[in-house]
Structure formats: structure tokens, C-alpha cells
Nucleic acid binder design. Structure first.
Lengths: 149, 149
DNA sequence: TGGTTGTGGTTCGTACTGCGAACCAGTACG
DNA sequence: CGTACTGGTTCGCAGTACGAACCACAACCA
């Protein structure tokens, strides 16, 4: 298989697994992403836009829907009365944790046919590609999932 | 970077590049996919469903829209008067070719920082992951792009 | 030959995604 | 102060995707 085909097809595979994990937790992939990003800390709408690569108007809707589901909350920014901080609700935090853990587990299973050394090689090569390009930090590294403990 | 994060983020990267290539040709990613699949030969709706991993009703809409854009055509199946063959129109074929070539070019550029041996290794590892799982054949290998000339 | 069952596709209603343009409110700068 | 900029929302639009219901034909069997 050529490198292009391998990249494209593996990317579809990962996306499908990710989407299914979200679905199993009653989330859309986008809502899952939002929760994962907010696991680290609350963010303003503008920050979320650039992190998720969305237009402002798209994000408003996404946050609206996720808020209606009781998973996130808009809090006023004490420093700027126009601005808003989007934060996880307790329920959202629990669900984010669950979803994140499970999504990682499933994706980690994908390279089951590779031995540890090969996994390492793969992680290294993909990591270099990712770092060579501007990729929104949509999915924290497992090791950094809970920064600050 | 952990393997999970590398997989997820590279998958977002590939998807973004793919989507942008489609957009530059006036296509949505889904329509681009449809065209790419049909480059090989016409298919029935059912076949397309399983190849693209979509529900029947979703595919009807996708084909409708692509047909309205003049890129594909529904032809009656001579063997089954219920069935339909979806085929590229001449314009669709030209556009498919253009899009496919360009998308491949851009994706091929992603691992620019890797030397040939590393690319080979990466293709091999990803290829094994893909083959280990049921991944719809959404993107033909470059070498097989124009089967039968 | 005729009825039942299965299959290929479409239609319909619903929810979500994503964008740009227009807009409002509050901040920052002059 | 007034003007420009910025953070967010609203609105209209097009596309994506699903399941349920449905139709027409095919396939099978009695």
C-alpha cells in the first residue's frame, strides 16, 4: 500500500473509532472534542475557535447544544464583561473523563498487530509529521490528560 | 508524543488537507470521496453504502446533490430494474481526476520531513493497521488510480 | 400461477455541522 | 468623549447523517 493511501485510510479508521466512542457516550464527535479540550481548563469562545479550527458562529452553536445537554456552562469572564468562559459542568467533567479514557483505549487497540518497538517507531514518525504542521491540539497526550493533577 | 495522540492528530491533519483539496475544487469531502470511488467503475447504491460506510438514506442525498452538480449520473441497471448504477459524467470524471491527483500530491507532501526509508517504514506500519481492520476502500492506491488505463 | 418474503432505493422528519454576513455590547485607544 | 476594534450571538443557508416508513420489483416457494 502506498504511503498516501495508508495515511488516508488510517485517518478514516481513527476517525471512525473516535466517532463511535463518542456515540457510545451519547456524544457527537465535535461535542466529544469540546469536552476533551475543556478537560484541561475553561477557555473563552475565541480560544476555542482557534483550538478547534471553527468559525465563531459554528462554535456558538456547538457550545449551545452542549450546554443544553448540561455538559458545559458559560461563565462570565471577570476581566471582560463581553467575554465568556466555557467550563465543564460536574456531569460534563465526568463524561469527558469517561469518553477520553475509552477513546484512548480503543485507539490504542488499533495497532494491536504491532510489537512495542514498531509502535514506538510509528509514534515517532507520526509525531514528527504532526509537529511539522499546524495541527490544532485537539487531543491531549494521555500523559498530559490531567495537567496539574 | 504518545501513539494515541499521534494517531488522532495525524488523522485530523490528513482530514483537513483532504477537505481543503476538495474545497478548492468546489467539492465537499464527501462528494470528493464519492467521485474517487467512482473513478474505478460505476457502482450500485448498495455497494456505495458499504464502501463509504453510510446509511442508504444518507447516500441518496449525497448522490442527489452530486447529481445536481452534474458530476454523477444514475443509470438503470440492465439486470435489475429496481437498481441503479451511479456513474461519473464526463465532467465528473475530469474533476475526479483533478481532485484525486491534487489530494494525493498534498498528502504526499505531509511527510516531507521524512527520508525515503522512513516513509517506507511509515507506509508499512500504517498499512498493516489498515489491513488489520475493516476500512472502507475509500481511497485507492495511487498506483491503482486509473485501473485499465 | 400466485402469494409471500426479501431487497434496492427513495422520501420524510429530525438533529447536527459549518460558514459568512450582519449585528450588538463592551473595551481600548486616541 | 468618540471612534475603532473585539468577543459573541443571531440568522439564513447548504450539507451531512440517521432511522422509520414506504414503494416497486425480484426471488422464492407452494
Amino acid at each position: 500500500m502506498g504511503l498516501v493511501a495508508a495515511l488516508v485510510r488510517s485517518s478514516f479508521l481513527v476517525h471512525a473509532v473516535y466517532a463511535q466512542a463518542a456515540r457510545d457516550d451519547g456524544l457527537t464527535p465535535q461535542q466529544g472534542q469540546l469536552l476533551c479540550v475543556l478537560m484541561a481548563q475553561p477557555y473563552g469562545m475565541g480560544e476555542l475557535c482557534s483550538m478547534l479550527g471553527l468559525a465563531k458562529s459554528s462554535l456558538t452553536g456547538l457550545v449551545d447544544r452542549t450546554e443544553n445537554n448540561g455538559l458545559v456552562r458559560r461563565e462570565p469572564d471577570p476581566r471582560d464583561s463581553r467575554a465568556v468562559r466555557v467550563a465543564l459542568t460536574p456531569r460534563g467533567a465526568r463524561l469527558a473523563d469517561r469518553f477520553y479514557t475509552e477513546a484512548c483505549r480503543r485507539i490504542e487497540e488499533l495497532p494491536a498487530g504491532l510489537d512495542p518497538a514498531e509502535r514506538d517507531t510509528l509514534a515517532g514518525l507520526l509525531g514528527r509529521i504532526v509537529l511539522d504542521h499546524k495541527v490544532p491540539a485537539v487531543f491531549a497526550e494521555p500523559d498530559q490528560a490531567s495537567p496539574g493533577g
